[in-house]
Design a protein around this nucleic acid. Structure first.
Lengths: 240, 240
DNA sequence: GCGTTGTGTTAACCACGTGTGAAACCTCGG
DNA sequence: CCGAGGTTTCACACGTGGTTAACACAACGC
C-alpha cells in the first residue's frame, strides 16, 4: 500500500471517490450500511484521516461515530463531514468532533482541496486533546479527569456530561439541550436525570469546586468558575 | 466587554457581513482598496480572526497578506479565505497560510458555521450573539449581562424583560404589550408587575445607568436614552 | 446464583423568584 | 393649592423549580 489510507463511511462513490483519488490517498470503505456499524468494526490503526458522509443519515449517528473515532487509542487523523445544507445547524457545540466539512452538492476539487489542507495540517498541528479549566483537567484520550491534581474517577455519563459542559464554558444549556447533545438521542421525560448527574458531578468535584457547575434558574446549567464573576457580587440585591 | 473584532479585507458586504453578524463578532474593515494596502496599515492587535476576500483579486496578494498576518508578533486568529472556484488550485502548498476557505457564491450559514468552527477551535469563548447598547452588553448564550463592564446578575424574568427592551431600543411599549411579549401569554390584571420588574432592573443597573429604562408617562417604558420619540404603537402586538 | 456498579426515576423538601395589594410619592391640570 | 391619575416603592404570600436522598433496574464480574 503506497498511499495513505483514508477511512470512508459509509461508502465511497461518485465525486467523493474521485476527490480522494485526485488527492492521492487510498479510500477504505468501512461499511456500506448504517453509520453506527463502523464502531463494532473497529478497523485497525493507521488511517491518515476519515471522510464521513452524513448527508441523508441521522445526524446523531454521525456524531457518535466521530466521538468514537476521536477516542481510539491511536485516533484517526482529521475528520471531514459531508453534509446536507440543513444539517449545518446541528454542528453547533460539536465543533470539537470534526475538523472540516463540505456541503452538498459535493464539488470534487473543493473536497480534494479540503482533504489536502487537513492532511497537510495534521502533520504540524499537535492538538493536545485536553481540556483545562479552573483547576479541572480532562484528558480526552485516557478518559481521566483531575480536579486540582486530585483524580476523580468518573463514570461514562458523568465524564461525557462534564466534558460537554467544560468544552463550552460559560454557556448555558437547557436540560433538553444537554439530553440531546450528551445523551445523544431524543429523550422522553426524565429532565430530572440531568439534575441528578449534575449533583453527582458536584459531589465528585468536591465542595471546594462544586461551584464549577452553576445553576441558571429556569434555564439550565453552565460550566465556569465563579471567579469569572468576581466583579458581580450583588451589593444591591433586592430580595433578601 | 464587547464582542470580538474580526478583520475583514478588503471590505465586508452582503452575505459576508451577515455571516459575521450571525456569528456574533464585530467586522472591522481594514481596507476598501487593494489587498496589499492592509500590510502598511498594520492594524492593532486583538483580532479574533480574519476574513480575506480573495475572490477577484490577484492571488499572490492575498497570500502575501496571509503571510504577514501570520508573522505578526501577536498573530491574528484563524484566517478564512473567500475564493473563486478557479482559485482552488492555487492553495496547494500554501496550506499553512490559512485555516479555512469558502468558495463563492457565498452561503451565509456555511460561512457562519465555518467562522464559528474555527473561532471555537482557536479557544475563543466570546463567540456568541449579543446585544450591545449604551454600556449594556447581553450575551444570549451565557445569559450574562454586563453594564459598563460590571456583571449584573439577573433573574430569569429580569433578563427576559431587559433583553426584550434592549433588542428594541428607543421604542415605547405599553405594559400590556410587555406582558404579552415577555411573559408570553394574555395576562389578566397585574399591570403593576411590569413596574416592579422595571424597578428591580433599574436597581441592578445602578443609579448611574438606571435611566437606560425610561418611563413614558401614561404609555409605558422604553429602552435607551432620550433622542427618539417614536410613539408607542405596537403595530405587531398580538392582542391589543 | 449473588454482589457490585452505573444509570435513570420518583417524591419530599426547601429556597428563591415572582406576583400582588396597598401605601407613599410624583406630576399635571384646574 | 387641591385633587386625580399615574408611578414608585415596599413587604409579604405563593408556587415554581432545584436539590437531595432513596429506590428500581439493568449490565457486568465473581
Amino acid at each position: 500500500m503506497t498511499s495513505d489510507p483514508v477511512l470512508c463511511v459509509p461508502s465511497c462513490e461518485g465525486p467523493v471517490r474521485k476527490a480522494l483519488e485526485v488527492t492521492g490517498v487510498t479510500p477504505v470503505v468501512a461499511s456500506s450500511g448504517r453509520l453506527n456499524e463502523v464502531a463494532a468494526l473497529e478497523p485497525p490503526d493507521g488511517y491518515a484521516g476519515a471522510v464521513i458522509n452524513a448527508a441523508g443519515f441521522p445526524f446523531t449517528e454521525a456524531m457518535n461515530l466521530c466521538r468514537q473515532l476521536r477516542h481510539r487509542e491511536r485516533p484517526v487523523g482529521p475528520i471531514i463531514l459531508l453534509l446536507d445544507h440543513y444539517q449545518l445547524d446541528d454542528l453547533t457545540f460539536r465543533e470539537d468532533l470534526f475538523d472540516d466539512f463540505v456541503v452538498g452538492p459535493f464539488d470534487v476539487s473543493e473536497l480534494a482541496t479540503r482533504l489536502r489542507h487537513r492532511l497537510r495540517r495534521a502533520g504540524n498541528e499537535s492538538v493536545a486533546p485536553r481540556i483545562e479549566h479552573g483547576g479541572l483537567s480532562m484528558n480526552l484520550e485516557t478518559y481521566q479527569a483531575t480536579i486540582a491534581g486530585r483524580v476523580m474517577d468518573l463514570t461514562y455519563m458523568e465524564y461525557e456530561l462534564l466534558r460537554f459542559l467544560a468544552t463550552n464554558p460559560h454557556r448555558v444549556f437547557t436540560r433538553e439541550t444537554l439530553l440531546s447533545r450528551v445523551w445523544g438521542y431524543e429523550y422522553y421525560g426524565g429532565a430530572r436525570t440531568v439534575d441528578v448527574h449534575v449533583r453527582r458531578l458536584r459531589a465528585k468535584l468536591g465542595e471546594e469546586h462544586a461551584h464549577l457547575i452553576q445553576t441558571v434558574r429556569s434555564v439550565g446549567y453552565k460550566f465556569g468558575s465563579s471567579g469569572d464573576h468576581a466583579l458581580a457580587d450583588d451589593d444591591q440585591s433586592i430580595g433578601a
